[in-house]
Write a protein that binds this DNA or RNA. Structure first.
Lengths: 178, 178
DNA sequence: TATTGTTATACTCTATAACTATA
DNA sequence: TATAGTTATAGAGTATAACAATA
């Protein structure tokens, strides 16, 4: 019989220990590390897998935490970048955050309709927009930052501050390396 | 004028150095760390942001590397898990990998149509399927593993083996912690 | 009553291609 | 020619809700 609990549950206790030395190498993997790691053998060497699971889980918490103001991670990053660099063009934002120009169009429509951002005419290039936060946008960003800090605090507590810092340092370096 | 290069480019050299001490704290952020970090100030405390960028970049490489056999990350993880635990039900796979049961249906349709997986009748529960790889599925997985190893090797070289191992350890622990 | 596989819907996000108006 | 913003399309993936068959 196969244990059904996912690795994310992390339960212990009532798992029947399988007899050791069960035989063929293909089946030996089944219970090797206890129920938690069942079947993930081939995945354990893959950083991308764990990165993905962690990222999804963290974004879920972020979305939940900021749900009262209905700001999602991509929107938050766009607001932050515009606030820090008023006058940025859409292409600038796209390059900075790795968001496709095409996708940014609808994202900006949304937050512009909510009165958080304005697309002004660029004084130097009539093709491009000069992005600015509105007063409402700055106020919203302030609330968003407070909620994001709660989210990040929860994450920090869960990881420990040493791990938290190290992950940011290593992953930021990774991003910069290409 | 604003430098347009994204953080992922990582180029150096021809960036004009801005005059120091440019003034107001809101604008001081613009060039503080050189063009690379332009405008990302508020994001630097957010692990989720760097985790996301890294994950997307790594998955892109994975997809490219396995494109000759048209196997995507989710498909690869499903094939691996079924190979290591023949007889798993769809719910089992769903729980193990954190893939929605509903989404797994179409994913399995695809790889079943390609002749890689079979959904057999479960001997113990007539509601559920017993998932097995076909011979072709095992052969495909073998090729996939070889290509995935190339992908992972590239990642390891880019990160350094110490960072690579540490990231896996920390992030696996994170997943297990809930 | 609860679970398994399934269908369906809505939304986010990535990846492209193409078009227009500018440069 | 190339770039900025835009529109459109296709597909992956998440999040839900509901249903029939079975437990």
């Amino acid at each position: 019989m196969i244990d059904r609990r996912g690795i994310q549950r992390g339960e212990t206790g009532d798992v029947a220990e399988d007899a050791a030395g069960s035989g063929a190498p293909r089946d030996a993997s089944k219970r090797r590390n206890g129920a938690r790691l069942l079947g993930l053998d081939g995945l354990h060497g893959h950083l991308g897998y764990f990165l993905r699971r962690a990222q999804v889980s963290i974004f879920q918490d972020f979305i939940r935490t900021l749900s009262e103001i209905d700001i999602r991670p991509a929107q938050y990053s766009v607001l932050l970048v515009i606030a820090a660099n008023p006058g940025l063009s859409q292409s600038d934002v796209s390059d900075l955050l790795g968001i496709e120009r095409a996708r940014l169009v609808r994202l900006l429509h949304r937050i512009e309709k909510r009165g958080l951002v304005r697309r002004l005419a660029s004084p130097i290039d009539r093709r491009s927009h000069s992005l600015k936060l509105t007063t409402a946008g700055r106020a919203m960003l302030k609330r968003a930052k407070a909620l994001a800090a709660i989210h990040e605090g929860r994450l920090l507590a869960r990881l420990g501050s040493a791990n938290h810092k190290m992950l940011i340092d290593v992953l930021r370096g990774f991003s910069l390396s290409r």
